[in-house]
Design a protein around this nucleic acid. Structure first.
Length: 122
DNA sequence: CTTCTGACGAAAT
DNA sequence: CATTTCGCCAGAA
């Protein structure tokens, strides 16, 4: 189970990204897993379709699975550093330290997710 | 209606 | 470590 269809996929993706707290980052694949019926690629598409500042989506907190930034690199890095996220010598983020662990139970419940289902991974 | 084109990721080779 | 393959949304032309 996950969010039912009246809500467009992109909006569901944005809703999840808005849950990432300042100072944390999440990988595309993780967003996709939380959203459900979604692939990492779709998350990239959704963000590409976004304009800076649109819908209050903190796009800078979405990085690839290796903790690296993509296209808007410099600007994104600056925004993250001002939130307290650190980069190593190779420009990567230590996901063990700054990786987001997912939305809290209250949010999942409020959006119609089965928390147990989410914890189990699928 | 069709075609094109993007902020990705995991597994196989 | 480098490449390839597939997954299959949404807006513009």
């Amino acid at each position: 189970m996950n969010i039912p269809d009246p809500v467009p996929l992109y909006d569901r993706i944005y809703a999840v990204i808005r849950q990432i707290p300042p100072g944390k980052v999440a990988a595309y694949g993780m967003i996709a897993r939380i959203v459900g019926r979604c692939t990492p690629r779709m998350v990239g598409y959704a963000l590409a379709a976004l304009r800076t500042g649109d819908k209050g989506v903190p796009w800078q907190r979405v990085v690839n699975s290796q903790g690296q930034l993509s296209l808007r690199g410099p600007e994104q890095r600056e925004m993250l550093e001002s939130e307290g996220v650190a980069f190593d010598a190779q420009g990567r983020i230590d996901l063990a330290r700054f990786g987001w662990s997912g939305p809290d139970d209250a949010w999942l419940e409020a959006h119609g997710y089965d928390v147990l289902w989410f914890m189990q991974g699928k």
